[in-house]
Amino acid sequence: MAGPMKMRATLSGGNTDVRVLMSHPMATEQQTKGKPHFIQNLTVKVNGKTVIEGEISQAVSRNPVFSFRLKGGAKGDKIEVSWLDNKGDTNKTETAVA
């Protein structure tokens, strides 16, 4: 079920802008008659170190897009974003800061 993810990380004004897209239905209770399917947890890591942990609900839009900002950063830093949904599906993507 885990569709592709896309991510871009760029240096901007001394900080790192991260933009990540996840393919996920993010189906609400109302849409599924009580069997929602949505991402619950997401984690952002820089060079293996966790910097952001998010908990999200079914009220996040379908195929969610998130933007984050990291302090400093350098070209080539490895950014990893992973998610876990309420059915135990998981996916992750990795990119280097450009």
């Binding site: 900080n15 820089v46 966790t50 910097v51 952001i52 999200i56 897009v65 998130f66 990291l70």
Partner: peptide
Amino acid sequence: VAKFDFKEGALPFVKIN
């Protein structure tokens, strides 16, 4: 809708849909 924890290295900024 969402809650984010920011640790050392992250700025308290987020954009969501």
